[in-house]
């Protein structure tokens, strides 16, 4: 009777171990990659600059760490509540950091010079935003929004509270 229990347990453990190795990304894995910039032979990514004369909604350090949470929270606000403010809108990031390709047009996510890809390739984090979202501003669309991004402290803390929920 005990024999089969052992067999089942062993099988289950093996399955869990295999699953863990195959699919689960461990916490800290990505950041470990970021911090070993000096060690790795991979050259640090050339992150495309924003449009001259503009300032990001938050400082680059904040955005580097938190853009994913900001984008995720903003996406829910936009889709469900009709929030169309430019802050933390993916379209804004894309438009402001657009990169011109050899043909003079903005490159898509298919090009490794694309703003998002430049860093995500380096960090080996795959995003599926661009299976649905446009990865470049529409031709001729230069003025998506250029409103002053002065989110006050109270507003930002509210937004962040939403992020945590």
């Amino acid at each position: 009777m005990k024999q089969w229990i052992r067999q089942v347990l062993a099988t289950a453990l093996l399955a869990v171990a295999l699953g863990a190795m195959a699919g689960i990304s461990w916490p800290g894995m990505a950041s470990a990659g970021e911090e070993s910039t000096q060690v790795a032979a991979v050259p640090a990514p050339a992150i495309p600059e924003a449009k001259p004369g503009t300032e990001c909604v938050r400082d680059p350090e904040f955005m580097r760490r938190n853009h994913m949470d900001m984008l995720k929270h903003k996406r829910d606000l936009t889709v469900h509540e009709g929030n169309r403010l430019p802050e933390f809108s993916l379209n804004e990031c894309i438009a402001c950091h657009a990169v011109k390709g050899d043909d003079g047009k903005n490159v898509t996510i298919a090009d490794s010079r694309h703003f998002c890809r430049s860093c995500h390739d380096y960090a080996a984090v795959e995003v599926d935003c661009f299976q649905c979202h446009a990865s470049r501003p529409e031709a001729g669309d230069t003025a998506l929004q250029s409103s002053p991004h002065g989110m006050n402290v109270l507003a930002l803390s509210e937004f962040l509270k939403g992020v945590q929920e």
Binding site: N91, I94, A110, Q131, C132, H133, L144
Partner: peptide, 14 residues
């Protein structure tokens, strides 16, 4: 698979 969607009308395979 779709490419070059409109920025304000995201659409994607599946």
């Amino acid at each position: 698979t779709l490419i070059d969607q409109k920025p304000y009308a995201p659409r994607g395979k599946g």
